[in-house]
Design a protein around this nucleic acid. Structure first.
Lengths: 211, 211
DNA sequence: ATTATCTATAGATCTATAGATAATGC
DNA sequence: ATTATCTATAGATCTATAGATAATGC
């Protein structure tokens, strides 16, 4: 791949660029408070795209915003892959996920604002991180790293706590985010059966390659 | 109080009834999927109230929906008072809260649907159950029932897990709700420092007076 | 007489489409 | 020639208000 988005012919790329401009505008709007009552005209203006072009790509506002959320979920998942792909210990994956998410509130507020407002819908669905987290939790139980908890209940506690941490970071920006993430990770690991000392140790391991 | 809503003169009561009809319509709409893009005209129709009356009580749709959410939070709080006011043990309060909430998904789906979609905003704010939960968590730490966790972090785990449980109940209605609530409560209690056995015992105590 | 609700409507949106314009493919 | 975008607009909303109607207070 010489330069970004070099697939298909020039028409295909032009089409993709217009679509992406609309999705990017939708992401900005979602991040600025999540009010989707804004008009299609204003969305097109913000994307610097002709009004009618909207209908070349989406049938409704809801469809565009759904696409924007999927776009964000993929980006969030990529961040996990980049920073946590080498981690083997399921317990360390959990604490790494909390700490990475807390940091992304500062480094990528747009993604995390959208997650804050929209991720609930994907908490137990097949898209996003849920299936991977479920797999890691099952592995943790199988390996004896975790108690024999029900993986779906463990996922519920995990996703709920993670989203609540993101909410806390945004509603109380003055708090120490890494400390909060660490302590919350300890709590979740204890809930999975790790001892106080084990949880404290795991949650304080250095995070692998955080640029 | 002879009959409900007997305060002020007849005009005041008429006014209150109109306002309540609007709030009740807003609650229904919120519970049916949370789409607030519905027109004021349709809201007034559903409330069986003249269109112009809306503006006698609210300046905007957002204001009405906010009032509806406050109404729901108060009702949710009342359910806690009714069923858990006699409970002294902070650990038992936690597990009781989970199990009560899971049951309310069946007994009062409107309230819980609205909570599902709107409670995130009130997770760490001064309204709703958050201040009371914070106080109970502080008491649990002070009494040595819980580890010396940061109460705000403990609240984050509690509220996040509770809302995620509600989400799970709605997205997977086939699951055993009481079993899920019990297991999740056990997990949260372990995260607060209770042993596996203690957590299991507390989460299985009979719920006080559940009509 | 006062207060609240209701009906009717003006003006301001907003959506969806049709037709014109511009870019690309071959 | 084909494909995509852009401009202009018709028709359908939707909001907010003004004035009429109904209910209550005293």
């Amino acid at each position: 791949m010489p330069t970004p988005a070099t697939t298909g012919n020039r028409n295909d790329r032009r089409r993709a660029a217009t679509r992406q401009a609309l999705v990017r505008a939708a992401r900005q709007i979602l991040a600025e408070g999540g009010d989707t009552a804004v008009s299609i005209q204003l969305i097109a203006e913000r994307a610097d795209v002709g009004f009618g072009s909207f209908y070349n790509h989406f049938e409704s506002k809801a469809q565009l915003f759904d696409a924007a959320v999927v776009d964000v979920l993929e980006e969030f998942g990529r961040a996990f892959d980049d920073h946590l792909s080498g981690v083997e210990d399921p317990a360390e994956l959990v604490s790494g996920g909390f700490r990475l998410s807390a940091r992304m509130v500062d480094s990528d507020p747009e993604v995390m604002q959208i997650l804050r407002h929209r991720a609930r819908d994907h908490m137990h669905s097949g898209v996003g991180l849920a299936p991977r987290a479920l797999r890691d939790l099952e592995r943790g139980v199988a390996e004896g790293r975790f108690l024999a908890v029900d993986p779906l209940i463990a996922l519920t506690a995990l996703a709920g706590s993670l989203l609540a941490l993101v909410e806390l970071r945004f509603s109380h920006p003055e708090l120490d985010g890494d400390a909060a993430a660490t302590e919350l990770a300890e709590m979740v690991l204890r809930s999975y059966g790790l001892s106080v000392d084990e949880a404290a140790e795991v949650a304080r391991r250095p995070l692998p390659e955080l640029g």
